[in-house]
């Protein structure tokens, strides 16, 4: 990888100041995506600002009907946290199927969502559960956060501090993983809230999205008996792993499995 200058601020304010003071800066969280792409020389930040030294960014907690996951909380901690497992078991289950154990020990929720990888798991959790992304500047609804392929609503130098998830009536996650990378070929988070159902799909398009035709078919509740319309293949991703038609089929199958898994 190319040379860079390493910074390890102890506070959010120091991290923001470091970003402002440095040219070509990039934040580092667990590094499970950023370090591999730096090793491939696809990214070459001149300054790497490591957020791991900021204690306030780490940890999971429950505040009433809201689960709050700190930005640099590793996937393994979300998967194992008793307070997450008892309130939103689907969120813990999703975290437990990201990558492999070693990746889950290092990779973090903010690192995942800031990258907005089209095949990542966490974007489906945020969009399905109607989460809110908290930053050092504002709060951003998940519906507004993911804007495109590797694109988010984050501004230059904006730091994610936490993600808050309202506790749903029930939710389930199902994914068809790429057997090598464990990324989702298609992953679906199915959620029932007091306001209706939300079906969030990752892996199928350049950016996570809600399957509104399925939501309309389901109405107010996640019923496994509901008939879902065929999902159109138009505009879906296709690569050596799966054609657009195959992914369209998987959107329906994974939605049914997510509904069946919902608790």
């Amino acid at each position: 990888m190319y040379d860079f200058t390493y910074h390890r601020p102890a506070t959010i304010a120091d991290a923001a100041a470091a970003f402002k003071a440095c040219a070509e800066a990039q934040f580092l969280s667990g590094g499970q995506t950023l370090l591999p792409i730096m090793k491939q020389r696809l990214a070459k930040p001149a300054n790497l600002i490591d957020l791991a030294g900021i204690a306030a960014l780490r940890g999971a907690s429950v505040d009433g009907q809201t689960v709050v996951i700190g930005a640099t909380t590793p996937h393994a901690d979300v998967a194992g946290a008793a307070e997450v497992r008892s309130t939103i078991p689907a969120l813990a289950a999703l975290a437990e199927c990201i990558g492999d154990p070693q990746v889950r020990n290092r990779g973090t929720i903010a690192g995942s969502i800031a990258n907005s990888d089209p095949s990542a798991d966490y974007p489906a959790a945020l969009l399905g559960l109607g989460a809110t992304v908290r930053t050092d500047r504002r709060e951003i609804a998940a519906d507004d956060f993911f804007t495109g392929l590797f694109e988010t609503a984050l501004e230059e130098g904006e730091i994610i501090t936490a993600v808050s998830f309202p506790v749903p009536k029930k939710a389930g996650y199902a994914k068809f993983p790429n057997p090598a990378s464990r990324y989702a070929i298609v992953g679906v988070m199915a959620v029932e809230t007091a306001a209706g159902v939300r079906i969030a799909v990752t892996g199928a398009r350049p950016c996570v999205f809600r399957a509104t035709s399925f939501e309309a078919a389901l109405g107010a509740s996640l019923s496994s008996a509901a008939a879902l319309p065929a999902f159109p293949a138009d505009g879906l991703n296709q690569d050596i792993h799966a054609s657009a038609e195959y992914r369209a089929h998987l959107v329906g199958v994974m939605t049914k499995r997510a509904i069946a898994a919902a608790t």
Partner: peptide, 18 residues
Amino acid sequence: NVLVNGRAVKSCTMLAAQ
């Protein structure tokens, strides 16, 4: 793989600085 603070990590995907 090595253990860092008791947890297995891939040491090819972690900076010494981390």
